[in-house]
Write a protein that binds this DNA or RNA. Structure first.
Length: 357
DNA sequence: CCGAGGTTGCCCATCGTACG
DNA sequence: CGTACGATGGGCAACCTCGG
């Protein structure tokens, strides 16, 4: 798909305005997206992120998460890109990882700063499909990364964008009422200095993102805080909590199973113990960072063998306050959304805890 | 079931360069 | 001043193995 195929549409402007946050007041905030942000769409391990040769099986991974009463399958296929290693070019399969996740977050953040535009594809196989896109410069990404304490070279930023353009994300519900498959960034144009005409780069977000934005199914969250976390799974867990935990009062715990976290975020380790240790570390980070006041862990046993763990999370005052403030924003948005009949994605509801057992 | 210790290479910081 | 590029080098998170 080419940028020529896209026609700007004005009628969606209201919803885009709702997506926007005040660049001065909300400098550290962005939006999490319903469904899209529930599962881990990234591979954090270094050893299998880049594959120089791989079977068809190895170039895709699937995460499973629950959404309302449905099971949601989220699959990611590796991008096939050219890469220079030791002076020679080679083609490799590569999965989106921490870097790609962070750069996507940054672009989404820029999109909340009155920058996003809605388009409709006019030609080709995507005709009629709506996309939300954003124009930017690599320099802006570089500077914003610096602001939130990250540092990637231009080469890395560009490689990340290419990976996102060539890696396919599929989201399916069991009953097929949700069934979307497209690259993370279906349309991408990167400025380079040799081509003086275009100094601005451009990407369109995944159709699920567009869908979620246009139906106002998003929630404000502390994006700068999320990016502060050193642990990748801490960041991911934090985002999930920000999106799901909308009744966070200090006395009311949020209950979640280890197995739920694992299937939504990662390939399991060989031993459950290792995953337990990993997420115990995550919870300790969250306590240290004043998101949780404390947490409790209970083993779930089958005979003598531990087969799962239950986490009970208690919000810190700071986090509970933030959730309340975000609820206020969410209520304003839901009250003023433009077309209540056009909701392909259900609204955010006051959902219960994730799992009981 | 658990802790400790080892391996890997991405992540990240920091510098310098170039151009209008 | 905004924008884009490249090289270098060490630390550390995620992952794995092994012994108790």
């Amino acid at each position: 798909m080419n940028k020529k195929d896209l026609e700007p549409i004005k009628s969606q402007q209201l919803n885009l305005n709702l997506f926007e946050l005040d660049p001065l007041l909300d400098k550290n905030y962005s939006n999490t997206l319903e469904i899209y942000d529930l599962a881990g769409k990234f591979l954090y391990g270094k050893l299998n992120k880049y594959l120089s040769s791989a079977s068809a099986e190895e170039t895709e991974f699937t995460r499973i998460t629950n959404y309302k009463d449905m099971e949601l399958r989220v699959s990611v296929t590796a991008a096939n890109i050219e890469r220079v290693k030791g002076g020679t070019k080679q083609r490799v399969f590569v999965f989106p990882g921490a870097r790609e996740e962070i750069i996507e977050d940054v672009l989404r953040k820029l999109a909340t700063e009155r920058r996003a535009e809605a388009y409709e594809a006019t030609t080709g196989t995507n005709a009629g499909t709506k996309f939300v896109g954003i124009a930017f410069t690599l320099y802006e990404i570089y500077e914003e990364l610096k602001r939130v304490g990250k540092s990637y070279s231009y080469a890395e930023i560009k490689e990340a964008l290419h990976i996102m353009n060539r890696s396919i994300l599929s989201i399916q519900s069991m009953d097929k009422s949700i069934d979307l498959s497209a690259p993370f960034f279906p349309l991408m144009a990167i400025a380079d200095r040799s081509n003086k005409k275009e100094t601005r780069s451009f990407v369109c977000f995944h159709p699920m993102v567009t869908n979620v934005i246009l139906t106002s199914s998003f929630r404000r969250y502390n994006y700068a805080k999320a990016l502060e976390f050193k642990g990748h799974f801490t960041r991911l867990t934090y985002k999930r909590l920000c999106h799901r935990w909308i009744q966070a009062s200090p006395g009311k715990p949020y209950t979640i199973l280890l197995s739920t976290l694992i299937s939504a975020m990662k390939d399991p380790y060989q031993n459950t113990y290792q995953d337990k240790a990993l997420f115990k570390g995550v919870m300790e980070d969250l306590v240290k960072e004043d998101v949780l006041e404390r947490y409790e862990m209970t083993p779930k046993k089958e005979g003598k063998k531990i087969i799962d763990w239950r986490f009970e999370l208690y919000a810190s005052n700071t986090f509970a306050k933030q959730v309340a403030a975000n609820n206020k924003v969410a209520n304003t948005i839901q009250g003023s959304s433009s077309d209540p009949n056009e909701h392909a994605v259900p609204r955010i509801q006051q959902s219960e805890d994730e799992i009981y057992f």
